[in-house]
Design a binder for these strands. Sequence first.
DNA 1: GAGTGGCTGTGAATCGATTCACAACGTTTC
DNA 2: GAAACGTTGTGAATCGATTCACAGCCACTC
Lengths: 350, 350
Amino acid sequence: MTSEPAPRRSRAEDSAATVGDVAARAGVSRATVSYTFTQPNRVSRELRQRVLAAADELGYVGNDAARRLRVGHSLALGLLISSTSNPVYAEIAAGAEAEAAAHGRFILVANSDESLERERAYISFFESQQVSGILAIPVGDVPAELLELRRRGTPFVLAGVAAGPHSYPAISGDNERGGYLAASHLLAQGRRRLLFVGGAHPHVDLRLAGAKRAVAESAAPASLEVIRAQVQTAKVGEAVSRTLLERPKTGFPDGIVAGNDLLALGLLHGLILAGVRVPGDLSLVGYDDIEFADFAIVPLTTIRHPSAALGASAVRILLGIEEEQDTKGRFEPELVVRATSLPLAGNDRG
Amino acid sequence: MTSEPAPRRSRAEDSAATVGDVAARAGVSRATVSYTFTQPNRVSRELRQRVLAAADELGYVGNDAARRLRVGHSLALGLLISSTSNPVYAEIAAGAEAEAAAHGRFILVANSDESLERERAYISFFESQQVSGILAIPVGDVPAELLELRRRGTPFVLAGVAAGPHSYPAISGDNERGGYLAASHLLAQGRRRLLFVGGAHPHVDLRLAGAKRAVAESAAPASLEVIRAQVQTAKVGEAVSRTLLERPKTGFPDGIVAGNDLLALGLLHGLILAGVRVPGDLSLVGYDDIEFADFAIVPLTTIRHPSAALGASAVRILLGIEEEQDTKGRFEPELVVRATSLPLAGNDRG
DNA sequence: GAGTGGCTGTGAATCGATTCACAACGTTTC
DNA sequence: GAAACGTTGTGAATCGATTCACAGCCACTC
C-alpha cells in the first residue's frame, strides 16, 4: 500500500457534505453556516432556516475532526472499564451512555481487560481523541497518566472508590454500609462464624470494613475470617469453595459475605455441587444484585445499589451539570433477601 | 490592531505537544516527524531515533483530529449494539476489542438500547467520527443509513444474520445447525411435544428452521409448537412461562428450545417456581452458553458458539486482513449438556 | 565528468469547522 | 439629521498532522 492514485473526491455526491457545500446551496457564507449550528441566535431566522434546509437536503453531518481541531476537544466522553464480564460494569456503562445521549454527547468505551498496558494505551487514545472528560472505573490505583491528563485540562470522575490516601472526584454508593448490612443480616439469622471473601479493591475493602463493624457491634460473640481473592470472578469463587471444602467441619464458616455477586455465584455453585446445603448449612450474601442473582442455582441474597444511576450521575458531573457533593447520600445500598440466606428451610426449595 | 505578535501558547508544559514541538526538539522539520510515525523507512535511522526520543521526552501523543482531517478517516472502528444486557454482546465486543487493539485500532461502542432513533444518531456519530469501518449487530433490518455510509466509503460487517433477501457482509455461526442440534438432543431423549420460544430475529429464525428440520427428520412422530417473544430477555421468559402454566396438562410441552439463554433462564425460573420439574417433567435447551448458564437454578443445557472469536473475525474482515468466505465453516455450534436436559434423574441432583 | 537514479530532508499546501475582526445596515435617541 | 448602538453577514486566519513536489546529496555508470 505505497501509492494510491486517488483521483476520486468529486465532492458531488460521493463524499460527505461540508460547510462549504451547505453554504453554497443556501447562498450564504461558510461562517453563517457554522454560526447556525453553534450559535443559532447569531443568525437571522430566515437565513437560519435556509441553512438548515440546505443541510438537511445534503445530509450534512459535520466533521468532528475539523471541529475538534479548532475548538480543542471532542463531544465524546471516555469510559475506562477493566472488564466487561461483570454485568455491573455494563450497567454503569448503560446508565452513563443514556445520560450522555440525553445531552448530545457520546461515550467511548475502552475495556482494558485488567491489563495495565492496555489501560495506558487507552488513556493515550482518549487523549488523542481529545475527549472532554473521562469516567473511570478504577481497578486499583488511579493511573498516573490520568492525573497528567487532568493537569492538561481533561477532567475525570471515578465511578467507585480510589485506592490510596488521595481524594479524587468519585461517586459511589456507601460500600461500608453495604458490607454492614450484609454481615448484620447474617448475624441476625444466628450465624456466628462469618467469612468474608473478596478481592483487594478499595471498594471491597470498604465492604469488608462494614462487615467488621457489624461483627464488632454484635451482641452475641461472632468471628469474621477473611479470604482474599485476586480477582472477583465466578471461576475464582469456585476455586475458593474447593479450598474451603478441604477443611475439617469445625473450621467451616456458617455465613459468607462475598465481595460481589460473581464471586458469590462461583462459591455457591462449588459448595452446592459438593453437597453443602445452602442456606441449610451456610448462608451466603453477595453484592451488586446482578440480573442473574435471581436465577442462580439457589437465588442469591445480595446488596443492591443503583449502578445505572451512578453512571448517569458521573456523566452529569463531568458535564458540569451536577456537583459531586450533591450525590452524597444518594445511591444507598439495600439488602435484597433471597434464598441463600433464608434461615433453615427444608430441602424442598423451589 | 490586526497583527498580534502572538505571545500566547507558551506550549511549554501545559498543553499537549504537537509535531512542531517534537520537530523543534529533535532539530528536524515537521514533515520528518510525521514521516517517522507514518512511514518509518522514509527516514534515516539516526533521525528516526532522535525524533522518537524527542517525542518520548515530550510525551507526544498526536492529535487524531488533525490526522483524520487530513487523511479522511479515523483509526477507530464503530461497534453498534442494540443492548448490553445480553452477555453475548459483551463477549462479541470483547473479542472485537482485543483484536482491534492488536492492530493498533480502537473500538467505539454505541449501545442503541433497542431504540431506532438512537441507532440512527449513533450512525451519524460514527460518520462524524469518520470511523474506518462499522461492526453492527443487527436488531433486524440493516438501517438505510448504514448502506448510505457504505456508499460513501465506510464498510460494515454484521456479526449475526441480516433480515431480508439482501446479502450483506456478515459472519456468524451456523444457527440452523445449532437449532437442529438442540431439537435433536431433545428428541433423542424421548421428548415428543416440543416447543420453540424465540424472538423475531433473523438468526433466531434460522435456529427455528433447524429445530423444524430435526423434527421433520425424526423417526418417531413429534410435534413442534412455536411461541414468539418480542424481545429475548429473562423477564419475557418468565412471562412466557406464566402463559404456559395456564394450560391444561395435556397441552404442555415436554421439551423446550429457547431462542437464547436469557429467555431460557427466565422460562426455567418461572417453571421451577411453579413446581414444574426440570428435567423431570420437561427438558430445556438454551442458546449461547453465557457464563451464567452454568450457575442457573438448574444448570442449563445450551448451544455454545465462539462469540469472542466471531467478534475478532469481524474486525479482521473490516481491516481487510481476512476474507468473509474464509470464515465459513468456522464458528461451529456445539451442544453443551447440563442438568436441564438430563433424561429423568431423581430429585437429589447436585 | 556529465548523466542517471536512489535516498533523505524540507517548505508549503491541504483537510473542514470555528471564530475574530470588521463591514454593512437598521434603529433609536437627543 | 447626526451620533451611537445593536444586529447580522462575511473574509480570512487558525487548529495540527499529512503528503506532494522538489532540492540536495551521494554513488555509480559509461
